[in-house]
Amino acid sequence: MTSKKNVLEVKNLQAWFGKFHAVKGVSTDYPEKSITAIIGPSGCGKSTYLRCLNRIHEEVPGARSSGQALLLGQDIFAPEVDPVELRQNIGMVFQKPNPFPALSIFENVVVGLKLQGIKNKAKLLETAERCLRKAALWEEVKDKLHQQGTSLSGGQQQRLCIARALAVNPPVLLMDEPTSALDPIASAKIEELMQDLKEDFTVIVVTHNMQQAARVADYTSFLMLGELVEHGPSEIIFTNPKQSKTEDYITGRFG
């Protein structure tokens, strides 16, 4: 595992909302084709941290960030980097399924490609099928690709959103509590899916569910009060953590 090269290297990342210091100098490396889970008590800054990585954090009024994050060697915060271009390389799946209303299932999947100016219908159809298969949704929707994306169930909508993110083919995929709005069966499907995604993508997932982190993640980061307490292979974090705070948290003594 350690021989893998790093896709993303985060160095001393800080984030603020106005005066509130939400993320206080987090540094982590993300090896390619791995899943890293970020856990921590609510309000610990884990979502904010994730949202810095595709620079969507800065879209919130009053929010700012500093530090470095090297995506394949290029600092994403460098002035010459356009956030729009960056986000085509770092996809994101949100807590709440958010397919675009008024768009069909098919349109929802290929919307990112269409934005990039790809109009070739055959290529769009091919991508849609590939990504929907990858998101384990194809069999369920192949006969109703032209129905509204919002007509699907919650779990299906979330897989649709995953397919939508995959269609742009980003090397890194961020997932912000992707199962917290879903029922256990739909959650299990998404977890299964994440294992498949690892074959092609580097996944960083924020979760409040420690069992989920232990099940799916190769690495786990534990954040508390905006600071990175511990980061390492999941089996070590969950069985033999070095920090007493981590141990307290995973054994349920607080949080």
Partner: peptide, 8 residues
Amino acid sequence: NQFKFRKV
């Protein structure tokens, strides 16, 4: 080129 067009 496409990207520049979008930005404009």
